[in-house]
Design a protein around this nucleic acid. Structure first.
Lengths: 344, 344
DNA sequence: GTGAAAGCGCTAACAG
DNA sequence: CTGTTAGCGCTTTCAC
């Protein structure tokens, strides 16, 4: 059994109260002399406070809960890292649970973490927008405990809390603008699944950029993909046959597929065929012609989500904040000015 | 404030004890009638037990600690997923902390998690083998709390506890044997960093296989890499110039580098130049010729680490177990029989 | 400045 | 079968 405040009090010949006062680091009261005595004894005995007991009375566990769809997904693990690093620096721990893209598990996890008395929650919801009853229940539980929550990346309708996300539209815009600035006029797009908001927004950004340059949206060179490698292959085949000089793939996975297809069709990447992705997965750098892409500051998103939560926990602010992070363009080797048409 | 056992007791007109007995799910005592009454009331009032209070008395928090070097590393995030899934299925939560390959952080994290009263620990140590004093301190703390611990993937000398790892030597053996069985005689190897045990073992496996086939180890076709892409490129250039027909790269990253270099040197992957990696990173499948490689069952390792811990926690077993997982060979498109020499 | 006492919500003897 | 009682280790009034 480990040493408790009581033990220290006994050894120091002071009351438990005094020990507690000293050890919880409150400045006031207790004289310098007793303070030092107590601290020395605590150190000598290697005293470690019991967080459970402390939490029981203070109702603070110094623990935050993190609910995410899948920790093995690169995006979420990077996010988790950001969250945990910020938490660690502020003496908080984080409990994480996977919900496996299952909305009912979100609910289950939420309940459990609440019972574990986490001080706050960071959530990337798996609940889908059409799952109204799950959302409602989620809302109900959340508002019955008044603890601070920050939701990340995915919208949960009707919830009033801090929200951190990436500006996907801006990202799509940047990608397309980059291509336009290089001089491309016929730019294809391989979209993600229609249902996902991130995907829709990226496509919107594509349209925004074309509009800005006074170019029409040509549906013939928009291919509806599904974020998977193969749809990149398929999309590229069609789009290249329709003589695009460049393609914006709404994620890197599809960009890799497009890359491969372009090779197969003997298009020289960069000079004959420009390609830009989205996400900046580690693999993007590893291609023979490293992929130009849109980088998401996922780690920072994690860190700042945690920061926002801590601010609420410290009482620094009570405002509800919505933060949108801007992605950045990473120019590598797959984009270049189009070959002059006159060449042929 | 949420509803407590006391509230339920009051409403049900029974004692707190009875409520506690019913709600903590112990079968014995209390009649079916009161049991049902209590359960109904608990449900109606949406009772949620306070784990802190419970933990304070039972000394069980239903929480396990996971200390890993870096959650954003694919290997560890996959591991973490396995751990968490298994934990979740058994009503445990997991607190994770990153130690960033910093041994002193291992110690810090260890202390904190212990104070949070985790029931057990799963650790991938960042402490390096030569950091004797850290190891000693780590040991000291661990043995002063008698809680169960399982160490994963990396050795920490002098610690007596469950250990789960991957059989890297077997993996290296399988990879090389695969090449030998295809008929290759001159097989190069691109190793990982000398210092890492995993890397050394993989190379050992390579040697084992050659020995089995009565082939000599030729140092001229062993290139010392560093697990990074570029050393794969370098290694492949040298080895190909020395006329190997196949290469075993000790990880997939280097295999990708070798792949790229082989392309540059106009070697047809598979038919003219066989290549096998190690790890089975997601990217391995995405290459034009998907990479043949050695797959590590990381998720399973995570799951079973957690399983071992739970077994200890349930008292199912007290034995100290060391488990070595075997990797598996995943044959894809980068390996084939060598072209007949007579051809030239 | 310091201490006594109450109590956070729960479980676990021990009686009845 | 059920209730009384005593804590778990800590913080926090409230007196002195």
């Amino acid at each position: 059994m480990s040493v408790t405040v009581k033990d220290i009090a006994k050894v120091a010949g002071v009351s438990i109260t005094t020990v507690s006062l000293v050890l919880s680091g409150r400045e006031c009261r207790v004289s310098m002399k007793t303070r030092e005595k107590v601290q020395k004894i605590a150190r000598d005995l290697d005293y470690q406070p019991n967080h459970l007991a402390r939490g029981l009375v203070t109702r603070r566990s110094q623990t935050i809960g993190l609910i995410i769809p899948d920790i093995s997904n690169l995006f979420f693990s990077e996010l988790a890292k950001g969250v945990e690093m910020e938490a660690q620096q502020n003496s908080y721990n984080v409990i994480f649970s996977n919900s496996n893209e299952d909305g009912t598990k979100d609910l289950k996890n939420l309940r459990i973490l609440l019972n574990k008395a986490v001080d706050g929650l960071i959530i990337v919801p798996s609940i889908k927008e059409h799952e109204m009853n799950l959302t409602a229940e989620f809302n109900r539980i959340l508002s019955s405990h008044k603890l601070p929550v920050v939701i990340v990346d995915r919208i949960l309708p009707g919830i009033e809390c801090d929200f951190v996300s990436l500006d996907n539209r801006e990202g799509g815009f940047m990608a397309t603008k980059h291509l336009l600035e290089l001089g491309h006029q016929k730019i294809g797009c391989i979209t993600g699944p229609q249902a996902l908001m991130s995907s829709g927004m990226r496509y919107q950004g594509y349209c925004d950029a074309l509009n800005l340059y006074g170019l029409p949206i040509d549906e013939n060179i928009v291919f509806n993909g599904d974020y998977c490698l193969h749809s990149g292959v398929e999309g590229a085949e069609i789009l290249i046959n329709r003589n695009v000089t460049a393609v914006f793939a709404c994620n890197d996975m599809m960009a890799c597929g497009a890359y491969r297809q372009a090779c197969i069709m003997n298009k020289k990447i960069g000079s004959e065929f420009s390609l830009i992705g989205f996400d900046d997965i580690p693999f993007a750098e590893m291609l023979e012609y490293p992929l130009t892409t849109i980088h998401q500051p996922v780690y920072d998103i994690g860190k700042s989500s945690c920061r926002m939560l801590l601010d609420k926990l410290n009482g620094t602010t009570t405002d509800i904040r919505k933060i949108k992070y801007s992605p950045t363009l990473v120019v590598r080797a797959t984009t270049a000015a189009p070959a002059a048409k006159e060449k042929f």
